[in-house]
């Protein structure tokens, strides 16, 4: 139980870090494209700044939002796995993807179609974020499989 909780926390943190990373990189790539002097050092500084900012300085702490989404999605996956015979890694991977999908699709509905996560403003950005959710869920599911 303790190990499962640890895997769950790591999975949520992994998703959070990946979402932040996508936001930072997509932003810096655009800045670089308009000839702003983006360096490796600046990229690290900005990423760590975003990691702190998006989890403590924004309107909604990202980690809380991700945790809420993933806990709900994992719960649904756990229930479905009672009846459906599927690999846990894929089932929780899909659950993680669904959690991020819900966040990037539902948040704009509450805010006049505004994408508050800047990295989610394009279709490509949304796809990458959903993939981040899948990877985090896949990690969680594969750890559960390993434990069994």
């Amino acid at each position: 139980m303790l190990k499962k909780s640890l895997y769950l926390i790591i999975s949520i943190l992994l998703a959070t870090v990946l979402v932040v990373l996508q936001t930072t990189l997509s932003n810096l790539m655009w800045l670089s494209s308009v000839d702003m002097p983006v360096t490796i050092g600046l990229t690290f500084n900005t990423f760590f700044g975003d990691l702190i900012g998006m989890n403590s300085g924004g309107a909604i702490p990202l980690v809380g939002l991700v945790a809420l989404g993933m806990l709900l999605a994992y719960l649904v996956a756990k229930i479905l796995l009672i009846w459906i015979n599927a690999k846990k890694s894929y089932a929780y991977g899909l659950a993680g993807a669904a959690a991020i999908l819900a966040i990037v699709l539902l948040m704009p509905l509450a805010f006049y179609n505004l994408d508050l996560i800047a990295g989610a403003r394009t279709a490509l950005g949304k796809t990458i974020l959903i993939l981040c959710g899948f990877l985090s869920g896949y990690y969680f599911g594969s750890k559960l499989e390993g434990k069994e």
Partner: peptide
């Protein structure tokens, strides 16, 4: 800064 808490740009002048 962005409402999410993310940096929009680390630059203030150019």
């Amino acid at each position: 800064k962005d409402y999410s808490g993310a940096m929009i740009s680390p630059f203030t002048e150019k």
